[in-house]
Amino acid sequence: MAILITGGAGYIGSHTALELLQAGQDIVIVDNFSNSKITSLYEVRNLTEREFKFYEVDLLNRGDLEAVFQENQIDAVIHFAGLKAVGESVSIPLFYYQNNITATLNLCDVMKKNGVKKLVFSSSATVYGIPERNPITEECLLGAMNPYGRTKLMIEEILRDIYISDPSWSISLLRYFNPIGAHESGRLGEDPNGIPNNLMPYITQVAIGKLQELQIFGNDYPTVDGTGVRDYIHVVDLALGHLRALGQVMETTGIEAYNLGTGKGYSVLELIYAFEKVTGVHIPYKIVDRRPGDVAVCYADPTKARVELGWKAVKGIEDMCRDAWMWQQMNPNGYKLTEKKELIKKF
């Protein structure tokens, strides 16, 4: 039996694939490489010295997805695949709704058809919208403020309806806060296309000289230094959270949501200063206007994940900065653009 990972070549997916393999699990990966590179899978295989199957599959293509289930004994699914840029989702909302929701509907229908009812879903703290309080608990009001967040919230509701219709399903909804960092080897990391949407790869690209300066969106928030405060979590801690959630869904039925965060917020400037302290590299920045919809403060209460999953983030902000910088130094232009056909032959 194997664990199917959708979007397994992506930033969080590849780190989770590595941790699953190191834990002795067999995995199958599907990815359409729209925002990822096959090189990450090659690195996962080399780091773990374990073989696994992968398929270049778009979840919108139901026939290709069904073939994966027919060719493998799938025991459970970890579902990462989806478009994830908040700003882009505002510009092209129909594309986000079509891709993220339809892909998940196809996946769940194929799972049901094949008797696979164990699912860990990659959700997001964006489902909370403007937080009613901090730290945020799973019982806080939900209300996403952009199309990306609304796709996550809609999918959560779809999954709840699936469970209501068939209580033999077991589903874990993992609401991520702000994943940063990289594998300590420097061989797996975040490799965004174009100008980064997230803060840490923007910082590291300024540090390596690819970008001239960092833009900080607003310094007049009611925070310690006027810049926005977020809960940054090391991607390896996040990956290990998926292993804990998987263990739970394999043993139980039901549907539960879990915040995966550290429970501590850092401002943009605090993150920059931590990065400069760890690396010795100065990060020039410029204050620009706030972005519409950004909130002042957002950080998790991760108590439920600790109590019910036995999971806790252990890596600190300096670990996150150090590992992200190691990745950027070893991969100044991101993953090497090796021919896909050449890498496929090596699997």
Rank of each mutant, 00 (worst) to 15 (best):
residue 182 A to W: 01
residue 198 N to I: 10
residue 178 N to Q: 13
residue 179 P to F: 02
residue 161 D to H: 11
residue 159 L to W: 08
residue 174 L to H: 05
residue 143 G to N: 07
residue 140 C to Q: 13
residue 122 S to W: 03
residue 192 P to S: 01
residue 173 L to N: 08
residue 134 N to K: 12
residue 144 A to T: 02
residue 196 P to E: 08
residue 124 S to A: 13
residue 118 K to F: 08
residue 185 S to D: 00
residue 202 Y to R: 11
residue 151 T to A: 01
residue 160 R to Y: 07
residue 163 Y to V: 10
residue 187 R to H: 07
residue 192 P to H: 03
residue 157 E to V: 04
residue 129 G to H: 11
residue 134 N to V: 15
residue 204 T to P: 01
residue 131 P to T: 08
residue 136 I to Y: 09
residue 143 G to Y: 01
residue 185 S to T: 13
residue 155 I to Y: 08
residue 121 F to C: 11
residue 194 G to M: 06
residue 200 M to G: 01
residue 191 D to R: 01
residue 176 Y to W: 15
residue 171 I to A: 05
residue 141 L to S: 15
residue 165 S to T: 11
residue 118 K to M: 09
residue 149 G to L: 06
residue 179 P to W: 01
residue 160 R to V: 13
residue 125 A to E: 15
residue 156 E to C: 05
residue 124 S to D: 09
residue 133 R to Y: 13
residue 207 A to D: 02
residue 190 E to T: 05
residue 175 R to F: 05
residue 162 I to Q: 00
residue 161 D to A: 13
residue 129 G to T: 08
residue 187 R to C: 01
residue 146 N to V: 00
residue 178 N to E: 14
residue 168 S to M: 09
residue 180 I to E: 07
residue 174 L to Q: 00
residue 196 P to D: 04
residue 174 L to W: 07
residue 202 Y to S: 15
residue 141 L to I: 12
residue 128 Y to A: 04
residue 176 Y to I: 11
residue 155 I to M: 09
residue 153 L to F: 02
residue 119 L to D: 12
residue 184 E to G: 00
residue 162 I to R: 14
residue 162 I to E: 02
residue 165 S to C: 12
residue 189 G to E: 04
residue 174 L to A: 11
residue 165 S to K: 15
residue 204 T to K: 01
residue 175 R to H: 10
residue 148 Y to K: 00
residue 143 G to P: 06
residue 150 R to V: 15
residue 118 K to E: 03
residue 158 I to M: 15
residue 142 L to D: 09
residue 171 I to Q: 08
residue 166 D to E: 11
residue 155 I to P: 03
residue 151 T to Y: 04
residue 165 S to L: 14
residue 147 P to I: 02
residue 123 S to A: 08
residue 186 G to H: 04
residue 125 A to Y: 12
residue 130 I to G: 07
residue 136 I to M: 13
residue 119 L to C: 10
residue 207 A to G: 10
residue 191 D to Y: 07
residue 119 L to I: 09
residue 178 N to F: 15
residue 197 N to K: 07
residue 154 M to T: 15
residue 181 G to H: 01
residue 155 I to Q: 09
residue 177 F to P: 04
residue 147 P to R: 00
residue 140 C to R: 10
residue 206 V to M: 02
residue 170 S to K: 08
residue 126 T to E: 14
residue 165 S to A: 15
residue 129 G to M: 09
residue 186 G to V: 01
residue 129 G to N: 06
residue 161 D to N: 13
residue 194 G to T: 03
residue 171 I to T: 08
residue 171 I to R: 12
residue 199 L to D: 00
residue 132 E to H: 11
residue 125 A to H: 08
residue 121 F to H: 13
residue 138 E to R: 06
residue 172 S to I: 05
residue 183 H to V: 02
residue 133 R to M: 05
residue 162 I to C: 07
residue 205 Q to C: 03
residue 130 I to Q: 15
residue 192 P to C: 02
residue 130 I to K: 14
residue 207 A to T: 03
residue 143 G to E: 04
